[in-house]
């Protein structure tokens, strides 16, 4: 009994100490004389390869001081807690906890992506083998993705719908079975919404959506592990020779900073300098070089 009492006191003391440290580090102020913490995704990430290609650094190495987060959630958590961070992130993921910058003066919105004025955007696609969607539930799901039901879900979730004047999905009561989808974590949350809606329409069908990244998407579709692989970059035939692709939605990549950061806008040139390992003399390493 006594032991348990002592143990309780110790645990209590530790908890208080940890909470104390945690609370003291909660909202650090922004200091423009500090170095920029450049956050990136790991190699193989669709968001990374799309972003690097759009800002003109395709296939270039990361700058030496890069901090790598292996997943969209990790990037968000880091930018939320680190006042000196800058990162890129699928627009559909951006929450109120972080601030999306205007790029070349254009705000990252669905409308601006659709009319092409916001430059950093990439297609979110599914890759599949032609033969696999010839009939049955796979064909039905593929048709559903292009229906007005799906387009509505896509735009409601903050993504760009691709099919104009789509027709409604017609339910086929005879269908049953399961569909496996895997790949890009950028497309995953939207695909889960779409899968849930499809399961509601076709009650005997289950759709399994798992992540793993665009690399996994290509691999699984090519090897037939999944019917549909999700990718978040321009389709690259070399990565899945047996497959073709279909664009589900267009997604912007937002450039995000901490909410305490006073910066509101950034240019493509500045982004390129920040993410360029070979920028040398022109490199931007401190925030006061951006905030004048």
């Amino acid at each position: 009994m006594k032991t348990m009492f002592n143990t309780g006191i110790l645990i209590g003391a530790i908890t208080v100490a940890v909470l104390g440290i945690g609370a003291s580090g909660r909202q650090p102020a922004f200091d423009a004389s500090k170095n920029i913490s450049v956050i990136a995704r790991e190699d193989g990430s669709g968001t990374k390869s799309a972003f690097m290609e759009i800002i003109g650094l395709k296939g270039k190495p990361d700058p030496a001081k890069i901090i790598i987060q292996t997943g969209t959630a990790g990037v968000l958590a880091e930018v939320k807690g680190n006042p000196t961070a800058i990162a890129y992130e699928s627009l559909g993921y951006v929450t109120r906890d972080v601030k999306a910058l205007r790029v070349n003066g254009v705000e990252a919105t669905v409308a601006n992506i659709k009319n092409g004025s916001y430059k950093i955007s990439r297609p979110l696609s599914i890759v599949y083998k032609q033969a696999s969607i010839d009939s049955g539930i796979n064909k039905a799901f593929f048709t559903f993705l292009q229906s007005s039901d799906a387009q509505k879900i896509i735009s409601e979730n903050g993504y760009v719908a691709m099919v104009e004047n789509a027709s409604r999905y017609t339910i086929n009561g005879a269908l049953s079975g399961s569909i496996n989808i895997s790949g890009s974590t950028s497309l995953q949350p939207l695909m889960i919404e779409l899968a849930t809606a499809f399961e509601k329409l076709q009650s005997k069908v289950t759709v399994n959506v798992s992540g793993g990244g665009s690399g996994t998407g290509y691999k699984d579709a090519d090897q037939g592990v999944s019917t549909f692989g999700m990718i978040s970059e321009e389709f690259n035939k070399e990565k899945a020779p047996s497959c073709i692709y279909h664009v589900v939605s267009q997604d912007g990549i937002a450039v995000i900073v901490n909410r305490n950061n006073p910066l509101n806008s950034i240019s493509m040139e500045q982004l390129k300098t920040i993410y360029n390992a070979e920028a040398g003399q022109n490199s931007i390493s401190k925030w006061n070089e951006l905030i004048k």
Partner: peptide, 12 residues
């Protein structure tokens, strides 16, 4: 190893 294992293929 862990950062690339699920994403990379081929030589990588």
């Amino acid at each position: 190893i862990a950062m690339g294992a699920t994403e990379l293929s081929g030589d990588s």
